[in-house]
Amino acid sequence: MTTAAPKRELPTRHAYGETLVELGREDDRIVVLEADISKSTQTYRFAEAFPDRFFNVGVAEQNMMCMAAGAAICGRIPFVSTYAVFGSMRACEQMRTSVAYPKLNVNIAVSHAGLTAYDDGVTHQAVEDLGIVRSIPNMTVLQPCDAPSTRKAVRAAVEIDGPVYLRLTRIAMPILYDDNVDFQIGKAIRLRTGGDVTIVAVGDMVFQAREAAERLAAQGIEVDLLDMHTIKPLDVDALLDSATKTGAVVTAEDHNVLGGLGSAVAEALGEHCPTPLLRVGLQDTFAQSGSYGDLLRHYGMDASHLVEAAQRVMRRKQ
C-alpha cells in the first residue's frame, strides 16, 4: 500500500481530464465524445489539444453513446463524458445494447457522482447509477477516490477489453495516494489493517471511512479498511479475507444502499461467508440541494455515522 498525507485537493474529474490529454499524446486511437458540458467534465482539455479527435455532439447523450459504439467498431478507443445521471440513465439502453452487448471498448467517464453534485439538487445527483451499470453484463465499474488513483483508473480502462464505467466527483477530493499507487482493476487497496471491524468504502466515502477509522482507533477499535475502487468485478477474495478476520462489515458509498457497493458486498458475503453487515449510504431516498458536508451529515453518511455503524455492527458479532 502506498499512501501519502493529504497535501492538496482535486476533483477526480480534473485528474480524468488531464489524463485524457496524456493518453491522447501517447495513443492516437483515443477519441473523446462530449455532450456540451466539456468545461465541467474537463474534456475541454482534450478538445484543445486534439480538436480532430474530439466530438461535441450537443445535448444528446443517447446519440453520443451509440456514436462511441460506431467509433469503437472502427478501431478507436472512445471516451464518452457527461454527468453520471445522464450517462447511466438517459443513455442506459444505448449503453446496454449498442456498447455492452457487443462488448465494445467504450469508456464511459461520468462526473457529478452521488452527493458530490451537492447543490445542483436531485436532477444532477446520480445515486442509482452503480446499481444500474453493475447489472449490465460485460461492464467494468470503477470509482477511484482521489486524483492519482483516477489517473491510473483512466489508463486501466483503456487496457480493458470491453466497456468501463468510471464514476467521478464534482467536488475536490483530498490526495490520498502517491503517483505510484498500485491500482489494479478488481484489486481492493487495504488502507488500514485491523481485526475488529471491516469498512469497505468506495469513491469519496473512502475519506469519511478513513476519518471514522481514526476515531475508532482512538477508542481502541482497529478497522480493516478497504478502498473498493472496483465495484465490478468485486474483489471477493479481499472482502472474504477481511470479513473472516473481523466478523463484522460496514460498507460506505455515496449512492443508494440498494444496488451499489453495499449490495455487491452483501451478495458476496451472503454466498460465501455470512457476516453481520451494515450498509451506509442513502437509505433509499432522494437527497436535496445543500452543501456536500451538510448532505452527508443529514443523510447519515459522514464519519460520525460510520463510527456509529461500526459500533453497532460489532455488537452483532457472534
Partner: peptide
C-alpha cells in the same frame, strides 16, 4: 455484420460514429 442492432433508433448514431472515424482515418 458491421454492427449489433435491433433496438430501434440507434443505428444512425452508430453509423455516424463509423463515418466520422472513417474520415479521421
Amino acid at each position: 455484420l458491421d454492427a449489433t442492432t435491433g433496438s430501434l433508433g440507434q443505428g444512425l448514431s452508430v453509423g455516424l460514429g463509423m463515418a466520422l472515424i472513417g474520415r479521421l482515418d
